[in-house]
Amino acid sequence: MKNFLCLLLVIVMAVSCVEKIIEKPAGLIPQEKMTQLLYDLAILNAAKSTNSAILEVHFDSPTHFLFEQYNVDSVQFVQSDIYYASQPLVYEAIYKEVADRLVREKEKMEEARKIANDSLALKSRQVKDSIQD
């Protein structure tokens, strides 16, 4: 009897932990689209911190422009973000994908920069060699 009560208590606790805390919002942004949007927001924030004056010349509100591109509004974004945050495994997967994509993009940019620098160094040597001849 004691074992049965312990087992029942464990089952009740497990079921109560599975309860959804936040209901799915009506305009939930799909997970893949949310991942792409968060990636673009990360790029936008990096651009803002690098040189916000250039962004302001081309866009009144870069964030608003980005939301328009994804056909979402700020309320829909916040509600979706809160919903995904209430599901830690899903939220972690979204942000892991964003982080992985940022790392891959950074590696591509560094490789392109290295190739460009190598090309400039080669061209510089060729010019020096032609002047010396």
Rank of each mutant, 00 (worst) to 15 (best):
M1P: 00
K2Q: 12
L5N: 12
C6S: 15
L7P: 02
L8D: 06
L9T: 13
V10P: 03
I11C: 05
I11A: 07
M13G: 09
M13Q: 06
A14H: 13
V15R: 12
C17R: 10
E23H: 14
P25Q: 08
P25F: 04
G27V: 04
L28P: 01
I29C: 01
K33P: 01
M34S: 04
T35D: 08
Q36L: 10
L37T: 08
L38C: 00
L41I: 08
L41Q: 11
I43E: 03
L44R: 05
N45Y: 03
N45C: 09
N45A: 11
K48P: 00
S49Q: 10
S49I: 13
E56L: 06
E56W: 00
V57E: 12
F59N: 13
D60W: 02
T63N: 06
L66M: 01
F67H: 06
F67P: 05
F67E: 00
F67D: 04
N71E: 15
V75K: 14
Q76H: 06
V78E: 11
V78M: 10
Q79H: 11
D81E: 10
Y83P: 03
Y83K: 03
A85P: 00
P88T: 09
V90D: 00
Y91N: 07
E92K: 15
A93I: 00
A93G: 05
Y95T: 05
K96C: 01
E97H: 09
V98F: 02
R101F: 01
L102E: 04
L102Q: 03
V103W: 01
K106G: 10
E107C: 13
K108V: 06
K108A: 05
M109P: 02
E110T: 15
R113F: 08
R113N: 05
I115E: 12
S119V: 09
L122T: 15
L122K: 12
K123M: 09
R125S: 11
R125W: 03
Q126G: 10
Q126H: 09
V127W: 02
K128I: 10
D129R: 15
S130T: 06
S130L: 08
I131L: 08
I131C: 07
Q132G: 13
D133H: 13
